[in-house]
């Protein structure tokens, strides 16, 4: 049963890690615009052949 101590510490650490990620996401303006990135990610594959750079 004492393994629970370890598990609780792990679970809280994991959760705290995600809260940290969430904080980072807010800080870096990732909630500012929730539409453009979803479109932008599709542009990497050029739909027509690229001219020479």
């Amino acid at each position: 049963m004492s393994v629970l101590f370890l598990l609780i510490i792990i679970s809280l650490t994991v959760a705290a890690f995600f809260v940290g990620c969430y904080y980072w996401a807010i800080k870096t303006d990732q909630f500012e615009d929730d539409y453009t990135p979803s479109v932008r990610i599709l542009f990497d594959d050029e739909l027509t052949k690229k001219p020479k750079e």
Binding site: V19, Y22, Y23, F31
Partner: peptide, 21 residues
């Protein structure tokens, strides 16, 4: 606006863990 989001995040974190415990 950011502060509001952060408050919700903290509340969600605590809420989830309290339920678990």
């Amino acid at each position: 606006y950011k502060k509001q989001l952060w408050k919700i995040g903290v509340a969600g974190f605590c809420f989830g863990n309290i339920m678990l415990l």
